[in-house]
Structures are given as structure tokens and as C-alpha cells.
Amino acid sequence: MNEAKIAIRNYCLRYSDGVQALKNVDLDIHPNAINVLFGPAGGGKSSLLRSINRLIDMADAEETSGEILFNGKNILDKETDVSWLRRKIGMVFSRPIPLPKSIFENVAFGLEVAGEKDKDAIRATVERALRQAYLWEEVYDRLDDPGNSLSGGQQQRLCLARILAFEPQVIMLDEPTSALDPVITARIESLLQEIKKDITIIIAPHNMSQSARIADYASFFLQGELVEFGEGSKLFVNPQDQRTQDYVEGRFG
């Protein structure tokens, strides 16, 4: 087995309103695999995702403790360059949020803020990223149209292309298909299967069936606690913990 891409060690998070979002989480994120976080709402999945790329800095986190090791380095350190971190660990949100710019500029944005000045290089990278997200064929003749002129599914692939542009090592997706129809959802799932060869995927699906469908590894979160972790093929078929079993079988949630 490969070494963990991201190793979360005894991680705790409390918000300033007193809510304990995560309690003593120990979790290994496996490289070149789809790592699923699942469980009912309020379980701490989003909070964990936002901790891994330090987006939590923008919310009002009161206290964090423990370690999150990315390639062996604790990213919770004050010295971590969060801009660098967020380029290494890209994030897709539940609702597609195109920036109020053109399709092209949406994808170019991450490169430009990283300091890329070469117009030809940006153009080439934008095309590469849009192709990788299977969006190029649909938008190549209208790259200057606003990002939100696209359909919902196209917008979500645009958001994915935006991240693929800066060649991240990890992509995190927080309920990425909750606003999309089944056909588009299937396309995005197969896209994830495609890119996991090069990129580690962490995803918090919005429903059980998607979790079971795509998980190489899965972890079950309940009220801020990691209840159970295992390979997807085993965990959904034969959960060890009673609470996991109840949730998987649909007895609550």
C-alpha cells in the first residue's frame, strides 16, 4: 500500500460559536484513489475539507489542534503558504460558483494570481484544462462568454477545469453533483475515475448511492467523529460499526 498523501492526526476543530465540528480525527487519504467522506449533514465533512486547504482561515475557527500532514508536512503550521497549498489542493464546491468573468478568464485566474505572465502559456494551459474537464468541445468557440452563461453541469466542469489548470496533487469536492441531473452526474463521476490516475480525490458526496458507487476508500463521519474507515468495497458491504451499518442501511440520515 502507498504512503498516505494526506495524514490527519488527532485533528480537532471548534468554531467561535462553540460548536465542536471535529473531534480527534485520525484519517489517511490514499494517493491516486477516490477517498469518500460520507455521513449525515453536520458530521464535519465540509469542515474537514476546508481544514485541509486552510479555507477554514476565512471562517471563524476558534481553535484547532492536531496535525494535518500533506506530503509529510504539517499544513496547520503558521508558516504554511496558503496560496501555494490551495494550488496543490484544489477545491470544488457544492454549487458551481463561476467568477463574474469570461469562461477563459475563469480558468486563467488561478494561473494569473500564481504569477504566470506568458499569454501563450496561459492560453495553452486553459485549453489543456478545459479538455481535461471534457468541456473544451462545448465552449471552444465562446471562451469570452461569461462563465455563468453555461448550464449548471458545464459550470461545475468549468470549476473543475479552473482547478486542473494549476495541476494540483489533490482535488477536494464538496457535494459536487448535488445540483446536477443524473446524466451530468455520471459524466462527472467518470471524469473523476479518469483523473484519479494522476490526482488524489477527496469527495463528500451528497448521497449514499454515489458514495458507494465511486469510493475506493470511505470514511463515515457522525457528529464530528470519524466512526469507521475502510476500503469502499468492504465498508459499504460489511460495516463493522453498528452506527455505520444503520446509516448505510438507511435507518437514519
Binding site: 479555507l55 476565512m58 496560496s83 488561478g110 494570481v113
Partner: peptide
């Protein structure tokens, strides 16, 4: 606010 969050998530200061 979501634009600020997205900008941050794309590595912008």
C-alpha cells in the same frame, strides 16, 4: 462572499 471564498480557494491572496 462566495466570490471571496472561491478566489481564496484558487490560491489568490
Amino acid at each position: 462572499e462566495r466570490f471571496r471564498v472561491v478566489c481564496g480557494s484558487l490560491g489568490a491572496t
